[in-house]
């Protein structure tokens, strides 16, 4: 994927840039469809009204937050747990916005707000290779907005299917989540510190999940990140 990304999108016309953006994110948009269906059906199963279920996808627009959040609501978790888990799951977006700060912060406010709203793992994946000069608002918008539309349609399918097909969550659509994140994370393991982070996060998240520890994703991630950071400090790895 990364090999054929048109890096220099600043010289394209507006419509060309939107089209290129939509095209480059298309593989990720397709891979997210089962996930969107699952998010929609889980929301209905968690007891949300149809309008609320669609509103979650339209306003929250974050697959991992939606899947984990609906699971928590269904399990009757407290509001504090729900919001803390949301905060931690979404905290990786802080890194994305920090990374893209030099490329986006000089844009007009409406463009900043739009790209901020659309800043998913997937949009970050297609924009993070570009330099400030190569970056263009319309390219990022084409990628982010086309991904948003697909997510809405997939969620809507899930909301409608969830009513006619019971237990949609038993069909293994959650594997799409695992497959997508494996495909995003594994190729980034190029340093020992990242490998250590992944292995510890894997072991601890499964352990905490089996032990039914609330906020297990939070704890396992923080511990894994600390180990990764420590390993890179000890080995003096370059960033």
């Amino acid at each position: 994927m990364s090999e054929n990304i048109p890096l220099d999108t600043a010289k394209l016309s507006t419509s060309q840039a939107i089209f290129k953006g939509a095209l480059i994110i298309l593989p990720l948009s397709i891979a997210v469809i089962p996930w969107g269906i699952l998010a929609g059906s889980l929301a209905v199963e968690a007891g949300l009204l149809d309008t609320q279920a669609q509103a979650v996808s339209a306003l929250v627009f974050a697959g991992s937050v939606q899947l984990v959040g609906m699971g928590l609501i269904k399990a009757g978790a407290s509001l504090a747990t729900l919001l803390l888990t949301t905060l931690f799951l979404t905290s990786r977006h802080l890194l994305y916005s920090a990374t893209l700060r030099t490329r986006i912060s000089h844009l007009p406010i409406h463009q900043r707000l739009i790209l901020g709203f659309l800043l998913t793992d997937e949009l970050f994946a297609v924009c993070s290779h570009q330099t400030r000069k190569q970056f263009s608002f319309w390219y990022a918008f084409g990628a982010g907005f086309s991904f948003y539309i697909i997510w809405q349609l997939a969620s809507l399918s899930g909301i409608l299917l969830g009513q006619s097909i019971p237990n949609l969550d038993q069909y293994g659509l959650d594997f799409a989540v695992a497959a997508t994140f494996i495909a995003i994370v594994l190729p980034t393991i190029k340093k020992l510190s990242v490998l250590v982070t992944v292995v510890i996060a894997l072991f601890l998240s499964v352990t905490f999940s089996v032990l039914e520890i609330e906020g297990g994703i939070i704890y396992s991630s923080l511990i894994a990140m600390s180990f990764g950071y420590a390993v890179s400090m000890i080995r003096k790895e370059p960033l």
Binding site: S91, L95, A178, T188, L202, S205, I217, L222, A224, M225
Partner: peptide
């Protein structure tokens, strides 16, 4: 820097 690998793995591994 380790947020992405850690959080994404902590989501997929229990699945």
């Amino acid at each position: 820097h380790y947020t992405g690998p850690a959080v994404l793995t902590a989501i997929w591994a229990p699945i």
